[in-house]
Write a protein that binds this DNA or RNA. Structure first.
Length: 271
DNA sequence: AATCTTGACAACCGCCTACCT
DNA sequence: CAGGTAGGCGGTTGTCAAGAT
């Protein structure tokens, strides 16, 4: 015998989540943590299947998700990684810890695909090819990065602003108590620094990770690590553990999500 | 002012793999 | 080992707001 069914298909509610459902789900995860999604509908009384609960949490309610506009830097990373990895949105999302794979996928489909198509037209008219997959502004190959960047960031191809419809006020009220007692997530002390540093240097050598001059980012199943090779400093960005309340507060209360890159440092391959 | 079209995001569907019994 | 599900992932669709006609 295998596992029992995840949920009863009869009476399953579909469509947009209500603020009340969000609150119920967040309250439950606050108490039990994410995971064991099968038990969520039965234990919460939510008329949703476990899959829907998981998606709602990972794509929308999970703390640490950056809302609002994609920065040119993020945009560049997505284009770069899509060229390298294809439509492996989860893999691409691992390099952008604040963005969900669904978000990146949507952004690609609604913005970047069109943008690149337009760009290709522009490049054709300038007799320029699209940049190679290992495109990097700092590299010394013969590609005309300056002209490419100029075209990419031209006013005509800039992304439009977008706001997420949400009930952030309700959710923030609910979460207030929770996040104040959350553990300190961002820096860990119990990891093997030598091992991490070695890994970072290896990746930097192979150009397999995403790196700028000194900082290498290693995506991981549950977190990503930013490693400064010069100072040997390792900073983790947990994907599942809640960030400090101040960050969540910022996310919930600022209409556009705010600019929080300083909190979740991103590798700068496109600057 | 009413209707139609388009854009953007949220959510669902179906497939695949890992894992449980 | 086999049967079967949970969870993860990518593709697609649904919904709604804003702009155009």
């Amino acid at each position: 015998m295998g596992r029992p069914p995840c949920c009863d298909k009869i009476g399953i509610k579909k469509g947009p989540w209500t603020p009340e459902e969000d609150i119920i789900l967040v309250s439950y995860i606050q108490e039990h943590g994410p995971g064991n999604w099968r038990s969520v509908p039965t234990n919460t009384g939510l008329m949703r299947c476990s899959k829907s609960c998981r998606l709602r949490w990972t794509n929308y309610l999970r703390p640490g998700i950056k809302r609002g506009n994609f920065t040119p830097h993020e945009e560049g990373m997505i284009i770069h990684l899509q060229a390298l990895l294809g439509n492996k949105w989860a893999a691409i999302a691992s390099y952008l810890p604040q963005r969900t794979d669904n978000d990146i996928k949507n952004y690609w489909n609604t913005h970047l695909k069109k943008k690149l198509k337009k760009l290709q037209t522009e490049l054709d008219s300038h007799n320029l090819p699209l940049p190679p997959p290992n495109f990097d502004n700092s590299s010394t190959n013969n590609y005309d990065h300056h002209q490419f960047s100029k075209l990419l960031n031209s006013p005509n191809s800039s992304s439009s602003s977008s706001l997420y419809a949400s009930s952030t006020e309700n959710i923030s009220r609910l979460l207030e108590g929770w996040m104040r007692s959350s553990p300190n997530p961002s820096r860990i002390n119990n990891i093997d620094h030598d091992e991490m540093l070695h890994e970072a240097q290896k990746i930097q050598d192979q150009d397999g990770g995403v790196s700028n001059d000194d900082v290498v980012t290693i995506p991981n199943e549950k977190s990503s690590y930013n490693i400064n090779c010069e100072s040997s400093e390792v900073v983790t960005h947990e994907k599942t553990s809640p960030p400090p309340f101040t960050y969540l507060e910022k996310w919930l209360l600022e209409e556009n999500g705010g600019q929080v890159e300083e909190l979740m440092e991103l590798p700068m391959i496109f600057t």
